[in-house]
């Protein structure tokens, strides 16, 4: 069984030699075969795991809070813990405080947070916005400039942003300062293709990662699983609008009440249930070919890294 095409590669992070300050970089994608099917075709690049950091305190499941409670007010310290203690490959900085309906912190403040994290850790970063198209555009532009050359991954651009006319602001900033972007669509391949087409007008394919949406186990993970399998199959068979590497926010697993809440004792403690929920969310999408994950719990990261090492042995 041979496939005519392969998934494109996207490199994240830049070392000093390439104009950044990261100790190491990661390359996503590259596979020319469905994931973990053939012994003689190991993945071109292993899945990468980023751990979340938020720039303000937000409600969080108890099981996640347990290991980070003391650093939650300090994104830089939190990032350091993710890398040094938990072994995260990368860090995602969620700039939720920029939400105009919330704290509405300025793009300059957001950029400062990112700079602090860049100082604290030497791994590549993913930068998350607040979801408001206009504001995200301003924030991404400012952050791009402040972290020029670091090859961040901007999370994310959407068709809503295209409709709001801010696509050019973001892609322009990404291009000028050497960053990559995530194109986010909601479980629909035609939309994913449409967004990629629009992005190709501004950016080379080497700068684009797709987020097809990750739903929590019990709340529709099967939609995510099937859409990723379909996308990967179509891409390998020749659909060049779907040949971008994919990302999963496996931390969405915590949306499930079964992951978060106390339940009847027969279902066991949530301290086990929650991390397992996230682990299985991520593992399922590893099997569907996803190239990079955003996770919240250290046990997810540890388990998935072990499993992947065993899978390539």
């Amino acid at each position: 069984e041979n496939f005519p095409c392969s998934i494109r590669e996207v490199r994240l992070g830049a070392t000093r030699k390439d104009g950044g300050s990261r100790r190491r970089t990661f390359t996503l994608g590259g596979s020319g075969s469905p994931p973990f099917v053939y012994a003689d075709r190991p993945p071109a690049n292993l899945p990468v795991f980023a751990m979340d950091v938020f720039d303000m305190s937000i409600p969080m499941p108890a099981a996640v809070k347990a290991d980070i409670r003391d650093v939650m007010d300090d994104p830089a310290e939190w990032a350091r813990r993710n890398v040094e203690q938990f072994g995260a490959d990368m860090v995602t900085v969620h700039l939720v405080s920029t939400d105009p309906l919330g704290k509405d912190s300025s793009p300059a403040e957001a950029a400062r947070t990112v700079e602090d994290v860049l100082q604290a850790v030497d791994v590549p970063l993913i930068i998350g916005g607040c979801g408001d198209p206009q504001k995200d555009a301003e924030v991404f532009a400012k952050v791009s400039e402040a972290a020029s050359g670091e090859r961040l991954l901007l999370n994310s651009v959407t068709l809503d942003m295209a409709a709001a006319g801010v696509l050019e602001t973001i892609t322009g900033a990404a291009k000028a300062h050497g960053h990559a972007v995530i194109g986010l669509t909601g479980l629909e391949l035609n939309k994913a293709k449409e967004l990629n087409r629009r992005l190709f007008d501004y950016l080379p394919p080497e700068d684009i990662v797709m987020d097809l949406t990750t739903v929590a186990l019990g709340y529709g993970l099967e939609y995510s699983f099937s859409i990723h399998e379909r996308a990967r199959q179509a891409a390998l068979l020749g659909d060049d609008e779907l040949q971008q590497p994919t990302i999963s926010a496996a931390s969405n697993a915590w949306v499930a009440r079964e992951a978060r809440t106390k339940m009847d004792p027969v279902y066991g403690p949530r301290e086990f249930r929650g991390p397992l929920w996230e682990t299985l969310n991520a593992l399922t999408l590893v099997l569907a070919g996803v190239d990079i994950f955003m996770v919240a719990h250290p046990a997810t990261l540890k388990t998935l890294k072990e499993i992947i090492q065993m899978l390539i042995r």
Partner: peptide, 18 residues
């Protein structure tokens, strides 16, 4: 229960009509 619960749910989900 914490081992079995996600299996029962995932099995149900994977076997629904896509």
């Amino acid at each position: 229960g914490w081992v079995l619960l996600p299996q029962l749910i995932w099995r149900f989900n994977v076997y629904t009509d896509p």
